[in-house]
Design a protein around this nucleic acid. Structure first.
Lengths: 328, 328
DNA sequence: CGAAATCATCGACGCGCGTCGATAATGTAG
DNA sequence: CTACATTATCGACGCGCGTCGATGATTTCG
């Protein structure tokens, strides 16, 4: 591996000149700039990451942590989020890697922190009162949560504004005359925001719990008339199961949107488009949200410890009508 | 962040002593060892990754590269492989991260190499004549391929010995009297090793192509009597679709193993166990294979450029009879 | 008991790069 | 023509740690 010294010698300039050509932080004449570039090309010089990180203060690197990536098959949404973060931090001159987690205790987090090789951590797939947030917080590492969790202190986060999203979706259904609303979810617990919105709109909620995979939606469609006959409007918190539910509905004599109206609040546009019929959504701009998360991560890193400000950002999204809803 | 100097001062020893306590590369008396440990604990000292990498030569870090992780939902096998690598390199005192790839040209590879922050690269999900192998090779970066691909030069790899695996599976089917063999695969192209094995055993092959997801297996089961009526033995190269195929078979009047015998050659044991009936396999010890891959990666890194040796390792696996095969 | 071996520890150096202050070269105004 | 601002470049230093050679302390053995 060639070093800065090699480049400098070949170009006939000092080492610092090479650095300034690379960083652009001081003016360099066009002629020497060209000579240095040529030398770099000729030697195939690549700056040493470790040395740059050491000399430059904190490493320009961000680590993404998600809970065990492969235990449950990740969805397209995860892909969009990762992509967004990668490009968000890249715009700020940072890089990003994924920290692979095997076991779900936070020994992996400890290890990452001990390693101390990245400037900040983006936490994904957080759960209630996530222990990893506590660990990161007490370690004093710059971090941003992609999502939210209840812990006893302030932290940086980027998340969807579920309160508004749910209210929006339910209002649309209510305005169409739907009173009995099914909630397609992987959990039997009703999201508090959703519950609140339903209450204020005086809507009846019925949980339609299933697993978020292909089967899940089919089973729900099969059982719909038996268990959920009174439901006329559905708000879906799932993505994969929603697509298969909609696809399979007609097989079980359910017509969308004639018999039931459905709004997806947690799926990508491409997924909503892929179903037959297409699914109306409250847009979830996962990619853009993640880009913003990446940028905030870099801000937090560069603000450093001096700043005690915490930043929270919430994203809403428009209603996109694809015809899966109709007047009751 | 506290540094080695802080620890040394607090413990009343020299900086190098602190280093040797940490690395264990020179004997240190128990008493000073204890004092240093105490100081480390008190200060919450964590060694600086960048500095260690710089001083120590190459960074003790491995990068895993897989093609766009989230484009197609990764399977459990990918999870086992990642886990294996993580633990394999960890046993050697190395760490590992996943390099997120968004676009499938190799600009991401270039970027990783330019960054120059990891000691080596493990390439996963390689395709025929993978351009990334060429890029890594000409960059002179230590790398190991988890799998194999045809390029015009030698490289380090760890892979299954498909030649033997296929031969083993087909021999078992043949010995049970099966002559007409279906090949469950996601591609219409017959694997050359498989073709060779079938030829030498004088078996008739019939491609049963489907997508490797839940649907894929169902569709195949549905169409089986129509298109593959003559098939009595199946060798499956898929995992998810194989499980759903076996599960759905009885729904379409196919009895396993009475009507057809099936052997999975590319699935995890837990997946084979999860089907009804359970599926016999040629064991694919994905985790162990990946552990070995990780260890080889470290060997390659530590051998350095001086060594031009290339290492290849092939894994077979035993036949595990779960009763999904029977005499014709 | 003295010489040699062993043990525990220290100090110094260098890894490659970012950046600050200084310097030489050039331009501008009085 | 001198005094001073501006521009282009250089040299030096330090980031934090791994490691080598050296040194003083202790033990071993003839």
């Amino acid at each position: 591996m060639s070093t800065r010294a090699d480049v400098a010698k070949l170009a006939g300039v000092s080492e610092s000149t090479v650095s300034y050509v690379l960083s652009g932080k001081r003016p360099i004449s066009d002629s020497t700039k060209a000579r240095v570039q040529a030398a770099i090309g000729q030697l195939g010089y690549k700056s040493n990451y470790a040395a740059a990180a050491l000399a430059g203060g904190s490493p320009r690197m961000v680590t993404m942590m998600t809970s065990n990536l492969f235990l449950t098959p990740p969805s397209r949404i995860d892909g969009a989020l990762v992509d967004g973060i990668v490009n968000g931090v890249r715009d700020c001159g940072y890089h990003s890697v994924i920290w692979p987690i095997s076991n779900d205790d936070d020994s992996d987090v400890e290890m990452l922190l001990n390693l101390n090789f990245s400037g900040g951590v983006i936490l994904m797939n957080v759960v209630d009162n996530d222990p990893r947030v506590h660990t990161l917080h007490s370690a004093g590492v710059p971090f941003v949560v992609l999502g939210r969790t209840k812990v006893g202190f302030a932290y940086n986060y980027v998340d969807r504004d579920f309160e508004t999203v749910y209210m929006h979706a339910l209002t649309i259904l209510k305005n169409l005359g739907h009173i009995s609303i099914g909630v397609l979810s992987a959990s039997t617990i009703v999201n508090p925001y959703l519950k609140k919105a339903a209450k204020s709109l005086k809507l009846n909620m019925k949980m339609m719990t299933t697993t978020n995979n292909y089967d899940g939606g089919i089973i729900l469609a099969r059982d719909f008339k038996k268990y959920y006959a009174d439901v006329t409007g559905i708000i879906s918190l799932l993505d994969i199961a929603t697509v298969s539910f909609v696809n399979a509905a007609s097989d079980f004599g359910i017509s969308i949107p004639n018999d039931i109206s459905i709004i997806g609040v947690n799926m990508l546009e491409e997924q909503a488009e892929s179903a037959t019929p297409k699914i109306s959504t409250i847009a979830f701009e996962a990619y853009d949200l993640a880009v913003s998360c990446g940028k905030i991560m870099v801000e937090v890193i560069e603000a450093g410890k001096d700043s005690e400000k915490r930043k929270g950002e919430l994203w809403v999204g428009d209603f996109i009508d694809r015809g899966s809803t109709s007047q009751l």
